[in-house]
Write a protein that binds this DNA or RNA. Sequence first.
DNA 1: TCGCTATAGTTCGGGCGTCATATTATGTAT
DNA 2: ATACATAATATGACGCCCGAACTATAGCGA
Lengths: 393, 393
Amino acid sequence: MQKIDLSNFRLATSGTAREINRRIVLNLIRARQPISRADLARLSGLQRSTVSLIAEQLIADRWIVEGATGRLPRGRRPTYLRLNGDRLILGIDIRPTATRMGVADLNARFLTQETMPTADTPDTFLDQLTQRARRLLGSYPNASWEGIGISLPGRADRHSHRLVFAPNLAWKDVDLKTPMEQATGLSVELENAANACVLSEVWFGPRSDTVQDLVVVTVSEGIGTGVFANGQLVMGNGGFAGEFGHTVLDPAGPVCRCGNRGCWEVFASNSAALRYYTGATPGAAPQLAFEDLLALAEQGDVRAGRALEEMARHLGAGIALLVTGLAPSRIMVIGEVTRAWRRVGPILQRVLAERSRTHTPPEIEPAEDTAQPRLRGTIALVIQKHFAAPPIT
Amino acid sequence: MQKIDLSNFRLATSGTAREINRRIVLNLIRARQPISRADLARLSGLQRSTVSLIAEQLIADRWIVEGATGRLPRGRRPTYLRLNGDRLILGIDIRPTATRMGVADLNARFLTQETMPTADTPDTFLDQLTQRARRLLGSYPNASWEGIGISLPGRADRHSHRLVFAPNLAWKDVDLKTPMEQATGLSVELENAANACVLSEVWFGPRSDTVQDLVVVTVSEGIGTGVFANGQLVMGNGGFAGEFGHTVLDPAGPVCRCGNRGCWEVFASNSAALRYYTGATPGAAPQLAFEDLLALAEQGDVRAGRALEEMARHLGAGIALLVTGLAPSRIMVIGEVTRAWRRVGPILQRVLAERSRTHTPPEIEPAEDTAQPRLRGTIALVIQKHFAAPPIT
DNA sequence: TCGCTATAGTTCGGGCGTCATATTATGTAT
DNA sequence: ATACATAATATGACGCCCGAACTATAGCGA
């Protein structure tokens, strides 16, 4: 039930039906490729004639290409359609220490990836970034570029495009979008890293055909969340929704980087686990990396195991909050901590069951970081502009 | 950016454009009535000829009627269009002690209202309810009935329609929908009371033209929340989203009716304030009503004032959580406590500002209960089926 | 080799939608 | 009476989907 916004609606014209059906067909091709026109007609419910016209249009607009012809027990041989592999997207995943860039096609298959250190000052960073981006763009002279997607450990203002909340980057008021657009001539989409992870799962995950409800929790130095509801990313005012990592769970708790006390991420992030292990005061420079803690626990170090369990309990407590309030059918946990899921998962589930007994528990899925959800999400950021349902209102 | 659900989409047909534009025109009439066809064309951007055709159809389908003719400085006099006042809706607001029913037209103007005590057992309650409903329906013999909307202090299962979570009603597994539909022959929509309040504000509130983001917090014996994001009510799996009142804020806190400890509503509901005042243990039978507490505070009773302030602090703490996580542009607080807003509001705002400093603070609007958002929301529940944007996917 | 049948894909007319323009209806001002 | 302005309707062009007819292409059996 979508309310029509009377201050900002789009009229339907005679082309609206085509727009909608075109997107449906395009998505079906994306999901089932290679696929014949006849199969598309069966899957979509459109007439074969209509499918042919739409396919012709999609070919003319170079979204799809005709491929091999099939072979059937009898009858005319079908011509298979698939997404055009020559339309490329540049994805950039900015993290505090390293920035990863990749070139992907419409199937989110990466043709290249490379990593560079994230420079300390925004100016040098932008210099290096634009330089690398231009080199990457130049190395595919025959490609047509759809745009650039960027994921950030923070938030950018919707209008000024300036970074307004990025405690891990220590940059303030930096506009990454405009310089990148000027340097490349492509349109740039910025999005928070947790939201990028949501989009990655929603567009490229194994169940991407049908996801309509999902919450992603990214666990690293901090905790980020992305909420997908009713088939849409919940944006909130200015795109600021999703900072559940900074909800205050204990006002008497340790100070968080955001300035408050006792945020969820102060209790459940990687840094928190390290704090539990070393007994250090919050904010102190970590003496070992979270990976080391995981290794210690794996080797049977009791204190390390305890620290992970404490982290797991707090993860469960925060997730219980999300479950109680938003009732998602799935929750995806992303981060290094999933490598210790055998130990962490059961504890998390137990706390969750205790604290949200009124709800049918969602599936909790640990996600390997190897799928690179952040980077893949930047591709989704660009792809969704052409593959999402056309806006009605 | 709405993702297309490939397991459940609707194709566009040649009639889709008309469907969309028809809804837009219908909503414009609702918002600006009485209005001429010419003005509709100017407002919508449609051609006058198209508006005429759509109006003709809406008149034939009896959604609108032609009214008086206007008078202009010169030129042909316009015929004003307005919503048909003969299409009626029955709204029922079930509360633990009393149930209120009302008959409203498409403008959500109530023609009748009446209250009955909520019987203890579901069976007698349903008997009384169906009897009253039939009598009300019979008293408007010339009307055409759109349906029945019901708001509940709890949740009903989407498929079985049975009550699954209603701690205040002490009924279990009761199906209100099927008996009502059988008794009246009308279709019945069930919704949680907080969600009904959201719909009331979204469809009938002063800024109903443009609301796209809103969180409603209902404060009474418990706390309910409803989340409206991207122009849609966030439903969650099985329609269970919105139970932020039962998020655990302090696992060592008092026991809640839901079975957990330290839920938000244990600290910030009317019952909590009474507990702060009397110093009683939680769960004990209240010795006075919340209205009495408000009166005492108004008369200068210091302890009563302190109790309200404690309640306000906890309200602020919970709302901070919603603001941090969902970043709504507006938050509406509904309940008796808004009568003491001069005292409660500033404290709530202060706590909120402290705890969600990373976000631009939303507008906090106290809502008089006199507007009857619960009951009015039941009307919205039925109206939105015909006035919301047609589903694309 | 020649039909028969099944399947893929195309062509074409009908119905419905919006748009743009012309036309009619109905007022006021001169 | 005439000119002008405005509301509302009528008409034809074009786009889209549907459905039926048609063409293309294969395997199979007599």
